[in-house]
């Protein structure tokens, strides 16, 4: 089952969760912080475990990949709190110790 949750925190800013379940177990997740540019949602930061390891990918304001940072596993509620605190500054922050 695919469980999608989108939270629009303000106009043009959104936090998205896509969780893939096999049975009751969550196998993969993608949590993204996106901004609206024109008519397209651009990813600024993304947390996922698609390659089997939790990490954070950072993108610039045009959606181009910038870097990958270590990031311990957090649930979606924690990610929402972090994004709401730092908003667009999140791409410049070192969040590995949070």
């Amino acid at each position: 089952m695919l469980n999608i949750k989108k939270i629009l925190i303000s106009r043009g800013e959104m936090i998205e969760s896509i969780e893939y379940f096999t049975g009751k177990r969550m196998k993969f997740y993608i949590y993204s912080y996106k901004i609206l540019k024109g008519r397209k949602w651009i990813t600024l930061a993304r947390w996922d475990n698609l390659d089997g390891m939790e990490h954070m990918d950072v993108y610039d304001e045009n959606g181009n990949y910038m870097s990958t940072k270590d990031f311990p596993k957090r649930n979606f509620d924690n990610i929402v709190k972090i994004v709401k605190t730092f908003r667009r500054n999140i791409i410049a922050m070192d969040l590995s110790n949070i």
Partner: peptide
């Protein structure tokens, strides 16, 4: 990001499982 999301959608489609979506608007 597009590829990662597409992968999860296609994986779910292969299982034939449902998609549940909830949108919370605080604006």
């Amino acid at each position: 990001p597009d590829v990662g999301e597409a992968y999860l959608y296609l994986l779910n489609m292969q299982d034939g499982e449902e998609i549940r979506e909830e949108i919370i608007i605080e604006d």
